[in-house]
Amino acid sequence: MKVTLENVHKSFPKGKSEKLEVLRDIDIQIKEGEFVSLLGPSGCGKSTILNLIAGLDKPNSGSVKINGELVKGPGTDRVVVFQQGGLFPWMNVLDNVTFGLRIKKMTRQEAEEKAMDALRLVHLGNYANNYPHELSGGMKQRVAIARALVMDPDVLLMDEPFAALDEQTRLILHQELQEIWAKTGKTILFITHNIREALTLSGRVLLMSTRPGQVKSSFTVKAARPRDPSDSVIVHLEKKIMGELEEEMEKVLKEEFGDDYRFKTSAIRDRDHSRMGDHI
C-alpha cells in the first residue's frame, strides 16, 4: 500500500473549550499508481485529509503512513498542488520549478534540465523566463503541476487544483492530467467537489459525508480511458453519487440556514410567519 490512513481522527479547537470534529474514523488505502479522487461537499474535511498526508497537519489519533512509514512532517515524497497554485511571485517560472530540486543540492544545470523537461510535459517550455503574474490561471496550474512532478514524488496530492479555472481550461487540463498520469504512473490523490471531474479523472472515487467527515462510500470507475463524460458507466455513477450527495447537501444547508431548510422540496408551503427571522 502506498498511502494508508487508519482510524484517523482530527478536530480543531473552536472557541475556548469547544472542539470542532472534522474527521472521524477515516480509513483510506491507496495502491501504488492508483488515481483516487476524494469527493465531498465543502467543509467535509477533504483538504484536512490531504494536509495530514502532506504532513502539514497532525491527526489527533490514528496513523497516516506512506510506504508503511509513519508521516512525521512534510517531505518531498508527497508534493501538493494547491488550489491557488502557490507559485512564488518573486521567482520566474524556471526558478519556481527548480526550487525543490535546488534544496536537494542538485546542480543548477541539472535542475534546470529537469525543470525544462517537466515544463515541456505541461506544454510551457516557452515560458521558463516569465513571471507568474504574466501567466493565465490555467498556465499557473500547469507550472504548479510541473513543480510538483519535477520532484518525482511517490504521491502527488492535488487539492482542488482546477476549481478556480474556467470550464474550457479545466477540460483541457483534465485531458492533460490523464496523459501525465498515464506517462508517469504516479500515485495521485485528487481532491474535488466536482462529481464530473472526479469521474473523468480517477480510477476510484471516495465519497465523503460531512461533519464529522467520514468516508461514506467508494466507487470504482470502470470506464475506458480517455474518459468520455457521456460514457454510460460514468453517467450511471454520476446519478448514483448525486443521489448520495444530495443527502449530504441537505445536512450542510440545514446547518447553515437552520432546520427549516428543505433541499428540493419547497419551503414556502409550511412557512410559519410567526417565526420569521428566527434563524438569522
Binding site: 504532513g55 502557490g86 525543490g100 520532484m151
Partner: peptide, 27 residues
Amino acid sequence: SLYINAAKTLGSSGGHLVRNVILPASL
C-alpha cells in the same frame, strides 16, 4: 501560509525557508 506550505512540501525548512520564502514574500 500558502507560500509557506508549498515551500515546506517542496522540502524547504528552517533557515532556507526564512531566506528564500519568508523574506522575499515580505519584501
